[in-house]
């Protein structure tokens, strides 16, 4: 952890020193406003706001985005961040404000190699509002993704699902912080890391429950599948609870592919190497099959190359 934090500080020095370098590109700060997003009552992807960004080598992409949903609005935001861009750096912040009864489905597909990224999402959810995030990260030398959610109104709900596919010496660090500031709020945090070679996945999750936030119901789960002898996963769940009538729990699993699953496939005549590949792919499909069809297709295309090349010796 200390090692990784150190590397993060190295990777993300203050902008002033970085700006002196040539070739830095600043992405235009974007404000996703009400008028900028198509109404999507049924959370249908075909009408969703989409933001596509291709990383260029040796550039710094920086952005600051904001999005507000009015009462009872339902929206989908889809982000594609793509690029095999050596020495590229992406740092951006997204501030999301969800007013009463609104729902945001937020999907972020991030794929590429040899670049570094740091993303911070700040969410404020009022009464009965729902924030659903799905983040897919495929590769990247060093990634840091922070999702900080404040549930400020009764019965607000947060769902954050992250899938990281890592190989080589890639590192991905995910931080989820959910702050319960009103009664009867719920949260479901799920992280899955598939880690090959000598890659390293880090997960930190925290539930902070204020005294007023009675009847909080929250769960976090971190599943790590290690495919290499030197593959590594670190996870740290934290609970800080000041209310006395709450349900907060966490779970974590770390292991290799399931031997019983492997035997079942082999007993049907599927050779071991192919069976392993099917089981690794299953870890991915299990999560992305639930996305809207058009997104699933895009996500599958992004993961296919990784799955074909991954080492599972």
């Amino acid at each position: 952890m200390t090692d990784l934090n150190h590397q993060l500080t190295e990777a993300f020095p203050p902008p002033a020193t970085r700006a002196e370098k040539e070739h830095w590109v600043f992405t235009k700060p974007q404000t996703f406003t009400r008028s900028a997003i198509t109404q999507t009552a049924d959370l249908d992807y075909s009408n969703a706001e989409t933001w596509e960004h291709t990383l260029q080598p040796a550039t710094w992409h920086q952005g600051q985005h904001a999005l507000t949903l009015e009462s009872n609005e339902q929206r989908t935001l889809v982000e594609f961040i793509i690029g095999d861009a050596p020495e590229a750096l992406l740092t951006d912040t997204l501030d999301i404000s969800l007013q009463q009864g609104s729902t945001l489905r937020h999907i972020r597909l991030h794929a590429g190699t040899q670049h570094q990224q740091r993303r911070i999402v700040n969410v404020t959810a009022d009464e009965n509002a729902t924030y659903q995030q799905f983040t897919l990260t495929v590769g990247g030398t060093l990634s840091r993704t922070e999702t900080l959610v404040d549930l400020i109104g009764e019965k607000a709900h947060a769902e954050v699902v992250s899938l990281n596919l890592l190989q080589g010496e890639e590192k991905a660090d995910t931080l989820n912080h959910t702050h319960f500031k009103a009664p009867s709020c719920t949260a479901d945090i799920r992280q899955r890391n598939v880690v090959a070679d000598a890659a390293h996945a880090v997960f930190q999750g925290k539930f902070h429950v204020d005294q007023i936030a009675q009847q909080t119901d929250a769960y976090m789960l971190c599943q790590n599948i290690l495919l290499g002898e030197k593959a590594c996963a670190s996870h740290k769940p934290e609970l800080e609870i000041y209310a006395d009538d709450v349900k907060c729990s966490h779970g974590a699993t770390t292991g290799t592919l399931d031997e019983a699953h492997l035997f079942y496939l082999q007993a049907r005549g599927i050779p071991k190497a192919q069976a392993k590949q099917m089981l690794i792919a299953a870890q991915v499909h299990d999560l992305i099959d639930n996305l809207p069809d058009a997104i699933t297709a895009r996500a599958l295309a992004l993961t296919e190359k990784w799955l074909k090349g991954v080492s599972h010796a």
């Binding site: 699953h261 079942y264 192919q274 099917m278 089981l279 792919a281 870890q283 499909h285």
Partner: peptide, 14 residues
Amino acid sequence: VELPGVNAAQFLRT
């Protein structure tokens, strides 16, 4: 065994 994420048609064909 249950194999979430492994499509039945693909499994049978493989």
